[in-house]
């Protein structure tokens, strides 16, 4: 993969990473005995395909890379995806159980939060009361000691 902020003199050719990846995958899959011959056949095949369908894997890879590094391309995509989701929500029936589940989950969470608050306050009150009791008993002890003297 070419990195735009690397030394520009030694840039990897556009789309090369994609070709390399494809070649490696096919070699690992086929396990040929003569790798150079296999690679030559592989690229000849790709060239033929390109002439027939005008699909260039290198160009395609270059485009992918470009989109990866120029983030605004993704922003557009996200927006359309969101729109699609909203459309699906408003129209699709399949979505409803999911959203219902989400809502119930949210309610549950609210309940839990409330319960947690209650438990925490109760426990704090308990601790405070314990302390007060201790203080009282300490005072009582001291008084007793004083009486003994």
């Amino acid at each position: 993969m070419s990195i735009p902020f690397s030394n520009t003199h030694y840039r990897i050719p556009q789309g090369f990473g994609n070709l390399l990846e494809g070649l490696t995958r096919e070699i690992l899959r086929e396990q040929p005995d003569n790798i150079p011959a296999f690679a030559a056949a592989y690229f000849e095949n790709l060239l033929e395909k390109r002439e027939k369908t005008s699909f260039d894997p290198a160009e395609w890879g270059a485009k992918l890379e470009d989109r990866f590094y120029n983030n605004h391309a993704f922003k557009d995509q996200e927006q359309t995806e969101k729109c699609e989701q909203e459309m699906a929500k408003s129209s699709g029936r399949e979505e409803t159980p999911v959203t219902a589940f989400e809502e119930s989950a949210e309610e549950e969470r609210e309940k839990e939060e409330f319960a947690a608050l209650k438990i925490q306050s109760a426990f704090r009150g308990h601790v405070a009361r314990e302390e007060v009791k201790k203080m009282k008993s300490d005072k009582g002890d001291q008084e007793k000691e004083e009486d003994n003297e």
Partner: peptide, 8 residues
């Protein structure tokens, strides 16, 4: 310029 052609 043309990586695919060159690779072949």
């Amino acid at each position: 310029v043309d990586v695919l052609q060159w690779s072949a």
